[in-house]
């Protein structure tokens, strides 16, 4: 790369940079904007959660309804994430490794749950499995409960987190090309062997990030779960729903204490994301560092 350090003769700043004053204003405004909209709410969660001391904070986690909400959230994520992981890998393989008719349409369909309102997502499952829904009479006759019960919560969680793993894997699998897999197959490796020894190691960080993002959303989903849960305390309330219950009861410390667990999960997600990006740091960043 030709270095841009050939200093212009008559001006103090290079011609392709802004004056220090402009830089300062832009950086200041950006930091202010992100502080007001992101850092302040984040700080408030922890300040309020510990507002009455550490004992009050941990008191929250003795409430049986809160504990059952935590268990339900873990259960829903433990089912939804592996389902969407298997789907994501299958979709990335089919779409990334092959050229076929209708491919871009299929990609749009996979993205669909991102653009559907969570409330509408919940409603569609009520229309399918609710007492007045398509399968309602059959389900009632066989005493199967999906809506206002745990299966409904798991189903809508799968719906809202549907695209995450596929979305992270797809571009990478496609960008890797097929040469390495073709070489492995030519050398006598089987299909599964090729996948586990060649493809998977190449995309493992994207896979991990997709899973973590999927998990964060699965544990934090509110709108869709709220519609199908029926809000039976201690039975069908997930962590976000229990936060709503506590908050509406003016129990701010327990509400924010429970919220702080989900905020920690969000922070952990961001840390893992940064770590993955740092691992796969692009060579262009090294150049940037040089220029600075």
């Amino acid at each position: 790369m030709v270095s841009a350090t050939a200093a212009p003769a008559r001006s103090f700043a290079p011609a392709t940079a802004e004056s220090p004053a402009v830089r300062l204003v832009l950086v200041g405004l950006s930091v202010l904007f992100l502080s007001v909209f992101l850092l302040a709410p984040l700080a408030l969660i922890f300040v309020t959660a510990f507002g009455h001391g550490i004992a009050a904070y941990f008191q929250t986690f003795t409430n049986p309804d809160t504990l059952s909400a935590i268990r339900l959230t873990l259960l829903a994520a433990a089912i939804a994430v592996p389902c969407n992981l298997v789907f994501g890998v299958a979709a990335a393989w089919a779409i990334g490794k092959f050229e076929f008719f209708g491919k871009s349409f299929l990609i749009s369909l996979i993205d669909l749950p991102f653009s559907v309102s969570p409330v509408v997502a919940g409603l569609t499952y009520v229309l399918l499995f609710g007492a007045q829904g398509f399968f309602g009479p059959w389900l009632t006759a066989h005493d199967v409960h999906i809506i206002f019960a745990v299966p409904g919560i798991v189903l809508v969680t799968i719906f809202v987190t549907f695209p995450f793993v596929a979305r992270e894997l797809l571009p990478l699998v496609a960008a890797q090309g097929n040469e390495e897999e073709e070489a492995a197959l030519t050398l006598g490796a089987g299909g599964w062997q090729t996948f586990f020894r060649v493809t998977l190691p190449n995309v493992k960080w994207a896979l991990l990030y997709g899973v973590i993002l999927c998990n964060a959303r699965a544990m934090g989903e509110f709108g869709a779960v709220s519609v199908v849960s029926g809000h039976i305390r201690g039975l069908t309330d997930t962590m976000p729903l229990q936060i709503e219950v506590l908050y509406n009861d003016y129990q701010f410390v327990p509400a924010f204490a429970l919220a702080s667990l989900l905020a920690l999960l969000a922070l952990a997600t961001l840390v893992v994301k940064s770590a993955i990006e740092w691992r796969s740091a692009k060579p262009s960043e090294a150049l940037e560092g040089e220029a600075a």
């Binding site: 993002l213 934090g220 989900l262 969000a266 994301k273 940064s274």
Partner: peptide
């Protein structure tokens, strides 16, 4: 680096948590 990482917070933070935090703020 911190600023760059924190930008994704609204993707990762559950909406109900964001809701009660913004309301209290």
């Amino acid at each position: 680096r911190l600023i760059d990482s924190i930008v994704d917070l609204p993707f990762a933070l559950p909406t109900a948590v964001a809701g009660i935090a913004l309301t209290t703020l």
